[in-house]
C-alpha cells in the first residue's frame, strides 16, 4: 500500500529545512555569544531576531538615516546602475548571437573568445576597469555589461541552434526570405533560451554593481557595505545589506521570469499542460 503520492507537500519540506537552518544559525550565534574571547558577538554572528529587529530600529545610525533607510536608498542606487549595464549587455549579447548564427566566420572568431570571457575572473578585474575608464558610473556599466553579455549570447546562440533542420527546410520551401525566417521561426524559438540567459545574468549584474561600489564611495549597497565593515555605522547595516543583496538577487531572478511570461506565453502554456489540463 503506497502512501499518497503528494505527501509531503513541497512547501512543508522547504519550511522544515528553512527552520532547521535558522536553528543552526541561532545555535551558532549562541556559541559565539558565550565565548569569552569575543567582545562583540554581533560582529561575528548575531541572532536572527537581532537582525530582524534592526530593520525596525528607529535610532539614527548616520547623521540622517535609520539603518533600514540607509539600506533602502543604497538598494535603489545599486539597482539603477546595474540596470543600465544589464540592458547594454543583453542587447550586445543578443546581437552577437545573431551575428554568430548568420555568419560562420563570426562564429568561429567569437567562440573561443566567448569561452575566454567565461573563464577569466572579470569580477576580479573590477579595479582595473575602474582605472581604465576613470569614471565609476561607466565602469559599473561596463562590468555589468560584460557579465551579462556572456550568458545571454551563449544561451541565445544555443536557442538558435536548437531550430531543427526540418523547420528551416519548411521555411525554405515556402521561399521565405531570411528576415522573415528569423522573425517567424528563429526568434520565437530562442526566447526561452534568452530568458534563461537573463536569469543567470541578472544576479551577476547586481553583484558587479555592488562590487564596484565597494571600491569607491558613491552610495550604493557596496559602499554601505564597506562603510559598515569599517565600523562607521552600526554593524546591523552590514547584515541588513547581506539580506538585502540576497533578496535583490532572488528578486531579479523572479522578475526575469515574470517578464518572460508577459513576452512569450509558451512557457505558461507548457506548464499548464504539464499539470494536466489538456484543452
Amino acid at each position: 500500500m503506497r502512501k499518497k503520492h503528494k505527501f509531503p507537500p513541497k512547501w512543508l519540506v522547504t519550511s522544515v529545512w528553512i527552520i532547521g537552518f535558522l536553528l543552526l544559525w541561532e545555535f551558532g550565534a549562541f556559541l559565539v555569544e558565550n565565548n569569552p574571547k569575543i567582545q562583540n558577538p554581533e560582529y561575528i554572528l548575531p541572532h536572527m531576531w537581532q537582525i530582524f529587529a534592526s530593520f525596525f530600529d528607529t535610532n539614527l545610525t548616520t547623521a540622517t538615516q535609520t539603518p533600514f533607510q540607509v539600506v533602502l536608498e543604497a538598494c535603489g542606487a545599486t539597482l539603477s546602475r546595474a540596470g543600465i549595464g544589464f540592458l547594454i549587455g543583453l542587447s550586445a549579447g543578443f546581437i552577437l548571437a545573431l551575428l554568430m548564427n548568420l555568419s560562420h566566420i563570426v562564429e568561429k572568431v567569437a567562440f573561443p573568445y566567448l569561452m575566454l570571457i567565461q573563464v577569466i575572473p572579470i569580477l576580479g578585474l573590477a579595479p582595473i576597469i575602474l582605472a581604465l575608464t576613470g569614471d565609476i558610473g561607466i565602469s559599473r556599466m561596463v562590468i555589468a555589461a560584460i557579465l551579462t553579455f556572456y550568458p545571454v549570447s551563449a544561451n541565445t546562440l544555443a536557442g538558435f541552434k536548437s531550430v531543427s533542420t526540418e523547420q528551416k527546410q519548411l521555411m525554405f520551401n515556402y521561399a521565405a526570405k531570411i528576415p522573415v525566417t528569423y522573425w517567424k521561426l528563429m526568434f520565437p524559438t530562442c526566447i526561452p533560451y534568452f530568458f534563461t540567459g537573463l536569469k543567470t545574468a541578472a544576479p551577476m549584474a547586481i553583484t558587479a554593481s555592488i562590487l564596484v561600489d565597494t571600491l569607491q564611495g558613491d552610495g550604493g549597497l557596496g559602499c554601505a557595505l564597506s562603510q559598515s565593515l569599517k565600523h562607521n555605522t552600526t554593524i546591523y547595516v552590514f547584515w541588513e545589506i547581506v539580506i538585502a543583496a540576497a533578496a535583490v538577487g532572488i528578486f531579479s531572478f523572479y522578475l526575469m521570469g515574470m517578464i518572460e511570461n508577459m513576452v512569450s506565453p509558451l512557457q505558461r502554456i507548457n506548464r499548464k499542460l504539464k499539470r494536466g489540463d489538456k484543452g
Partner: peptide, 17 residues
C-alpha cells in the same frame, strides 16, 4: 520560389508557440 510545393515531413514540424 513560385510556391508550387506543399511539403509534409516525417515529424509534424509544427511551431509550438
Amino acid at each position: 520560389l513560385k510556391q508550387r510545393y506543399g511539403i509534409v515531413f516525417q515529424r509534424p514540424v509544427l511551431f509550438d508557440w
